[in-house]
Design a protein around this nucleic acid. Structure first.
Length: 494
RNA sequence: GGCAUUGUGGCCGAGUGGCUAGGCUCAGCUCUGCAAAAGCUGCUACAGCGGUUCGAAUCCGCUCGAUGCCUCCA
């Protein structure tokens, strides 16, 4: 449990993970803004952190995993101009803002389930924590790091920077940041160009608004994460994660708010996941090169040659480290699809392995290699390579080319199950994720039927009636089944 | 312009200075009635040029290329 290493954005180094409380870990991940369908880039981030969450659990940590839902106050422009996203979408769709929130929250959960991600321990909403956010803003004002103008409260970045390093997370100096900032209209209310809103005064047309000491309004985007993370994980907690694109603005402001409020650094380990690209260009909502998870599953998109199962996609993501960019292409996806199928086939074979009195491969070394891979900043690609070594052993034992003792077989099963299913989250034995397991009863009937056909084929083979046996095989294969003639009989897969 | 990341074999992708992951593709072999599956073997990889070193894909410098952030985004 003590060998885990994590790359910390703050130090730009791989560090030993030392939790604040022995045996426990607090993890906060910035969740989605639910004003439209979740897109695949978001999914990659959440799947990456699902892996991290799963491995912490697998190591025996008691983890509190908090992932928020942003359902209020997220403006179009990050620097406080623009319109409320929910209200804008609501006008377009003629719905109440909270209907939008509900619709896309449900859709988000559906996709997360399809990818077999574990639900977080707590999934707090911004709109449900307005009080906490107001209290935090009051404290920041009392501490002298924020000021109110016409019902809007701004964070005073330049004043904060005198005492703290505002740009520490991105290694930037305040002067450089100032240069890079444009002069925007309607900003006379701000004292400094980098100042950002903690609370925004409602206009007459604002649909989502709450009462506050500064009048009716809504919270700025960044304050919700500071308020909710400190509420559920404490003023300083272990790990905060999110996509790399949040590093410069959102997370930088989160640190500033928390420091200004609580006088302490909020997070020990900052983790950032890399972007998803298509043809080497970042997939983004507005670039037109993105597709939705649903389109990926069905293949119903011009960029996709066919559909890919959620587990094949998850496996594809596990073959790349979370800090590397991941490029989507049909070729790469299809390669992963086959690799995934081969690994899952070996998992099935593992169930039927027969032990003997000696072992030819070093199972303990395999197990250690799996732990080593994940302990090195959650290196899933190396883990996958080790699991293929495990699958090679499984198949060799199955072919009678290698042997294994009962004890080693038990260890091999524990290792393979633990890392394939519990850590990588590649679904259960029968058909993968829960959504694919609904027709369990049918599956049983189907497999009896296939077994019957294969039994008939065997009888035909026994009397050298190869015409009949091949006909059965060819027709089954045409239906998508794979027939494997093994040493001790026939097996099949889909 | 500033701050970062990055350039690995046909493709995708790991790589902590020396022991050259893994998957997919392709070719061959073993097994098989034939296939499939499985196993084994192979396919002149580290952008270029210098440097440090006994030794560099890995460290340093320069050149060229790609990407991200700095402006909504996971």
């Amino acid at each position: 449990m003590n060998n885990l290493k994590i790359y910390n954005t703050l130090s730009r180094k791989i560090e030993n993970f030392k939790p604040i409380h022995e045996g426990r870990a607090g993890l906060y991940v910035c969740g989605p803004t639910v004003y439209s369908d979740v897109h695949l880039g978001n999914c990659r981030t959440f799947i990456s952190f699902d892996l991290i969450y799963r491995y912490l659990l697998y190591l025996g940590y008691k983890v509190r995993y908090v992932r928020n839902i942003t359902d209020a106050g997220h403006l179009e422009g990050d620097r406080d101009e623009g319109e409320d996203k929910f209200a804008k979408k609501a006008k377009l769709e003629q719905l109440e803002p909270m209907e939008i929130v509900q619709k896309y929250t449900l859709g988000f959960h559906e996709v997360m389930r399809a990818f077999n991600t574990l639900p977080p321990s707590i999934e707090p909403t911004a709109s449900g924590h307005i009080g906490e956010q107001i209290e935090m803003i009051k404290e920041i004002i009392a501490n002298g790091y924020a000021y109110e103008t016409n019902g809007t409260v701004y964070f005073d970045v330049e004043k904060y920077n005198i005492e703290f390093a505002y740009g520490q997370l991105t290694n930037r100096k305040l002067e450089d940041l100032m240069e890079g900032t444009r002069e925007l209209q309607g900003q006379d209310e701000k004292r400094g160009r980098l100042d950002f809103a903690l609370w925004i005064a409602a206009k007459s047309e604002t649909l989502m608004k709450w009462n506050s000491p500064w009048g009716w309004g809504f919270p700025g985007w960044h304050i919700e994460c500071s308020a909710m993370s400190s509420k559920y994980l404490g003023e300083t907690f272990d790990i905060h994660g999110g996509g790399m694109d949040l590093q410069a603005t959102h997370h930088t402001n989160e640190i500033a708010q928390s420091q200004a409020c609580n006088h302490k650094s909020p997070v020990n380990y900052w983790m950032h996941t890399n972007m998803l690209t298509v043809n080497n260009v970042r997939m983004s909502k507005n670039a037109g090169n993105g597709f939705l998870p649903g389109e990926l599953f069905t293949g119903d998109h011009p960029l996709l040659e066919k559909g890919y199962s959620p587990m094949a996609v998850r496996f594809f993501m596990m073959q790349t480290h979370y800090r590397s960019t991941l490029d989507f292409s049909n070729e790469a996806l299809q390669a992963s699809e086959k690799g995934h199928a081969r690994l899952i086939a070996a998992m099935k074979t593992l169930e039927n392995l027969k032990p003997t009195t000696s072992t030819t491969s070093d199972i303990e070394a395999l197990q250690k290699a799996c732990y080593d891979a994940m302990n090195e900043d959650f290196n899933a690609p190396i883990l996958v390579a080790q699991l293929f070594e495990g699958s090679r052993i499984i198949n060799s034992v199955n072919d009678g080319k290698e042997t294994i003792t009962a004890d080693d077989l038990a260890l091999l099963k524990r290792t393979m199950h633990g890392f394939v299913f519990d850590v990588l989250g590649l679904g259960g034995l029968v058909g993968g994720p829960d959504s694919y397991r609904d027709n369990q009863g049918q599956d049983d009937k189907l497999s009896s039927t296939i077994d019957l056909l294969l039994d008939m084929r065997q009888k035909a083979k026994d009397r050298k009636d190869f015409a009949t046996s091949d006909e059965i095989r060819n027709k089954l294969e045409a239906l998508g089944f794979v027939i494997k003639d093994g040493k001790d009989g026939v097996s099949w897969g889909v």
